[in-house]
């Protein structure tokens, strides 16, 4: 579609210190993703796949390397800049605790869109219909099942119309049929809206349903 990919990551490194010991989590990771594409990040526990996702999302800053989203460098952003990035350019879905318990389901779905200044009531309604919670918008998250909660989290992310959706084991707490349903919905909406998706999962079965799979091992992409 364009010359520049939606997401470009080059030679990304990140290390943590734990009890005085340096642990290299990412050792020069590079990848790219175009709009409307989906990428699965797989790997063993501790392979650095979540860290990679966090760095792309601007939750943390990399030690070295370049991250570009929509052609703009995000690796050099300060704290406030990264917060802005999270607010308006990326959407995050985690395994759990995605929702704000004090807000109703409807408010939760609308929340990030409002935060990003891109609130579209019709879109929220469509999304709610699509995830099948249209009749439960007044309820509070605790009243929903785990699968419903994850679907609401996805709807919330998509309602803000980010360029990039980043999901970290979004179905990790769900059983297989529910996980499939949630993933189906997510892939469908991502495709429909032309959004790119990066999803961390340890499930090979789920990973294979995405456009591409990148496998991490010891902080490097090996496949």
């Amino acid at each position: 579609m364009t010359d520049t990919p939606l997401l470009r990551v080059s030679d990304l490194t990140k290390s943590f210190s734990d009890a005085g010991r340096r642990i290299d989590v990412l050792n020069g990771v590079s990848l790219h993703l175009d709009a409307g594409q989906s990428l699965a990040l797989t790997g063993e526990s501790g392979s650095g796949k979540s860290t990679l996702l966090h760095l792309i999302a601007g939750l943390e800053a990399p030690d070295d390397g370049v991250i570009e989203i929509g052609g703009l460098r995000t690796d050099t952003l300060d704290d406030a800049g990264r917060a802005r990035l999270r607010r308006s350019d990326v959407g995050l879905v985690f395994q759990q605790f995605n929702l704000i318990p004090s807000l109703s389901v409807g408010d939760n779905i609308a929340f990030q869109a409002q935060l990003a200044g891109r609130y579209d009531g019709a879109l929220v309604k469509t999304l709610a219909d699509q995830i099948g919670v249209a009749d439960q918008l007044g309820k509070y998250p605790e009243a929903l099942s785990g699968g419903q909660q994850q679907r609401v989290a996805i709807a919330r992310t998509l309602a803000a119309r980010p360029k990039l959706v980043l999901a970290d084991e979004p179905t990790g707490n769900l059983d297989e049929p529910r996980a499939d349903a949630v993933l189906d919905m997510m892939l469908r909406i991502v495709r429909d809206t032309g959004t790119a998706l990066v999803m961390v999962t340890h499930s090979r079965r789920l990973a294979e349903r995405l456009d591409r799979v990148a496998h991490l091992s010891r902080g490097r992409i090996v496949a």
């Binding site: 917060a83 985690f94 995605n98």
Partner: peptide, 8 residues
């Protein structure tokens, strides 16, 4: 979640 959504 708020922090994740970009509130410092």
């Amino acid at each position: 979640p708020l922090w994740a959504m970009g509130v410092t």
